[in-house]
Amino acid sequence: MNKPKVDHLSKRVKDKVVIITGGGSGIGRATSLLLAQHGAKVIVSDIDIEAAEETVGQLRAFTDETMCLEQDVANHEHWDKLLELVLSRYGHLDVLVNNAGIGISGECRHTRLEDWQRVIDINLTGTFLGVQAAINAIGDRISPNQSSASIINISSTYGLVGGGLVSYSAAKGGVTLLTKSAAAECARLGYNIRINSLHPGGVNTAMANIDSEDPDDQTALQEFYARVPMGRCAEPIEIAQGILFLASDESSYMTGSELVIDGGYTAV
């Protein structure tokens, strides 16, 4: 695996070809904007194509090198189509951010099998399909910009500790160990691909799905914040900055690792 060649005077992910799933909103949109501002060519995928188009519209304010695609991450044919499109347009792939995910969940004894399966399909199987597609697309090839490729899987603090969201935690815990196994495999094969997981705590996005009018939701939210040492949730940009670090060559020696951005939630 290559030694670091970091030029801090230039854009931190200049000319890297980046796929961001779930790029139409929340962490995905903030990441698309931040990486594009740092010189990346960003491909935004989302199951909601209108949301993806809106993100790309925002990116076009400062770059033409962006595009979007409708994608169900749990569908492997969609991954084939996405990779084919990216490779035919850009010739290679540098970074994949497996960000798409859903948050429906609840306690074990009330979880219906179909809800469990939907969460596992999108959050875990979708990530697996993405990791597999990216490794097959990148393999042992060296990127034209000579740096290592990076796959970033968005897990959660609930991929590290339990917390009353049984299917979500099971899926995100799976993402944590999928990441380590795939990272060890790539390193063993001598592939120049780093794979890490990122674990946000509470983030101010639509997934939090808080009804500001509902006093029960407000109470639940206040109780959650009371458990976060920093006493607040993260803004999407604070997660995007961690993704930028993992996407850039600054994290050249990190693979199979966990980047926890949770305001101290799991430190307690």
Partner: peptide
């Protein structure tokens, strides 16, 4: 480079964390 990330305001929501920068040693086989 990891120390720089933690030192800068980019990591404004990161506290009490442990960043493992080990070339995959703790990832497994």
């Amino acid at each position: 480079n990891s120390i720089l990330f933690l030192a800068s305001e980019e990591s404004s929501f990161v506290t009490g964390a442990d960043f493992i920068v080990d070339g995959g040693v703790t990832a497994g086989f």
